[in-house]
Design a protein around this nucleic acid. Structure first.
Ligand code: ZN
Ligand code: ZN
Lengths: 349, 349
DNA sequence: TTACAAGTTT
DNA sequence: AAACTTGTAA
């Protein structure tokens, strides 16, 4: 429990997923089969997979006497607490077709079957800490209703419902950490994951979340907005910190994010009209550039902290930072520095 | 088994439906609750309910040695057979918000939870006949796949899944006849209903169908087109006649029917443009009419058979026929003739 | 009845 | 990515 390697991820080859090349794949997609494509992309979250491969159910679990939380969720308010509990999401994961993050709305849009690679940090390097993750309905009047999977996604003949522990079946999300507990308190479901201190050189602990139902599902979440609430707990279940994040599991993260952001700016405006003029701006020729480079390669690493106005600009800066380092890596053959720097690019909440 | 009264319908008060006035009704509508409103309208299919009320599961069922059909469905072709097997739908039920019939497409659009009041006729007045009803996928490549309810609609805690026989749970439709068998042959589901000869004065036998899933349901029909196949069977399960009807269980029968008919006429045309100009025709002032009536009331009944060009015209003629008789009924107080004549208005397939 | 939401198809 | 479908809400 002292080293990074106990934060294990599910090895792909141990999940009973049909091959994407299976000719029945399309045919079996009867509306509630999962899109496994992300889980078949060899490099999808490669950097999170430690070298060591462990069985899905570990023989020596990290034990807590009780998985009960001392104070069930009554508020969503952020509470860093005495350990300055924080979470983040690697920026290079934030603007993909399968996972979009809206900085304006502080909201994650993610497709079912895909990975939300969260990072968590707290200021103590000693003691046993746990992460509890609970999905709740965002609206006050739904807050006490348990968030559970729909009937269709709980069907036991679905491939991703086989070879799982019975306690996982109703959970909308599962973690990538095989040592997580799947807890149920009066129908309110949560996961409880041991938080080991970050490995040397990293300042936070990665924990993946995978989603097995959608926000739109009838008999389940049924189109209601949801949040994931992360609490830092002590070994005895005392709440030491709390952070929450709005999450929507949907089929078109990009579209839905753009729609929501547009609604925020233009309430009650005719959406279809607005979008058209936004998505089809008049073409502007790119400015001429001098791409000649005569600068010596500099081996030093400079820490940079800056605020950028506007998400597009923000993303552009990030992309540029990544690309310029990629150019460096290609020229020098030093891909290590690229890997390290790009992992440092986190989106903090 | 010799009289009309053995074609019983489910008495409303014996179905375990929540009251429409229940304050939880709206709240419980989590996407897969049924719209019970039709079943609460006192007069909805009043005329089909015989005076005698029978328990939902009859104590003395009409027995067939085996519910197996000698020749399972391999074709959808119409086959009147030696008994001239026919079916029809009362026209006054054909153009409602809950049930639309497209004469162009020979297709029924019906909301879940609502009644399709079919009528069946055959030319023999002696012997024991049975109606088998099977729902199949319209497309050849899906024909052999069983049509069953989705997981969400099979949930046992839904009110309309309680107090039913286990054999009914997977069936997309149920009949209004309590003596129907619910058969399963390798997953292919069908109902088998005793066909008693029509009562004196009627020329066909009414059988209601109620729907408990939708064509759009994931893990169920999943947006595939379906047909209901009706076969006339002998006491030994020999097929004596066959008729089929395209049925789509959906939330907006009128809209979907109009869309389909529009698609038929304007294949690949921009639908949204077309519909707008169709649904908002330029206003035309109605022609002046002389509504003075100086004709003596005629007590004779005249049989009429005619073909009308165009569905709107066809409906207009039917409505006019109904209304003119209604006027007669109001003037004379003879509502019997109205009832009898309007029931004669059937839409034959 | 219209507009919207959100999954699926092209 | 755009268009279409189809359930739901206003
Ligand atoms: Zn679901
Ligand atoms: Zn269904």
């Amino acid at each position: 429990m002292e080293n990074y390697n106990s934060n294990f991820y599910i090895p792909h080859n141990q999940i009973d997923f049909p091959s994407i090349d299976d000719p029945f794949y399309k045919y079996q997609n009867n509306g509630y089969m999962m899109d496994y494509s992300s889980l078949h992309q060899q490099n999808f979250h490669k950097k999170y997979i430690p070298n060591q491969v462990t069985p899905y159910w570990p023989k020596e679990p990290i034990i807590r006497k009780s998985s009960v939380c001392q104070t069930p969720i009554v508020t969503l308010d952020d509470y860093p607490g005495e350990f300055n509990f924080q979470f983040s999401l690697p920026v290079n994961e934030c603007f993909r077709t399968n996972l979009m993050y809206s900085k304006k709305l502080l909201k994650v849009y993610i497709k079912m079957g895909h990975v939300l690679p969260m990072r968590f940090s707290w200021s103590s390097f000693h003691g046993d800490f746990w992460l509890r993750t609970t999905m709740v309905f965002r609206e006050d009047h739904d807050r006490s209703i348990p968030v559970q999977r729909c009937y269709a996604h709980m069907a036991s003949d679905l491939p991703y419902n086989q070879n799982i522990n019975a306690s996982q079946l109703q959970h909308v999300f599962r973690t990538g950490n095989v040592r997580s507990y799947y807890h149920c308190n009066n129908g309110i479901l949560s996961t409880l994951t041991p938080l080991n201190n970050p490995v040397v050189g990293l300042k936070d602990v990665p924990i993946d979340f995978l989603f097995y139902c959608k926000n739109s599902c009838p008999t389940g979440i049924n189109r209601r907005p949801t949040m994931m609430v992360f609490t830092l707990e002590s070994q005895t279940g005392q709440v030491l910190g709390r952070r929450s994040l709005q999450v929507q599991i949907c089929s078109c993260p990009k579209r839905d994010k753009e729609r929501d952001e547009n609604d925020l700016q233009n309430p009650k405006a005719k959406r279809s009209q607005e979008k058209k003029s936004v998505s089809n701006p008049p073409p502007v020729p790119p400015p001429e550039e001098d791409t000649e480079s005569s600068i010596e390669e500099d081996q030093n690493v400079y820490s940079l902290k800056l605020d950028v106005l506007g998400e597009e600009n923000y993303k552009a800066v990030l992309k540029y930072a990544y690309d310029i380092m990629a150019g460096y890596a290609v020229r020098t053959g030093n891909f290590e520095i690229l890997k390290k720097c790009s992992e440092e690019l986190h989106l903090c909440f």
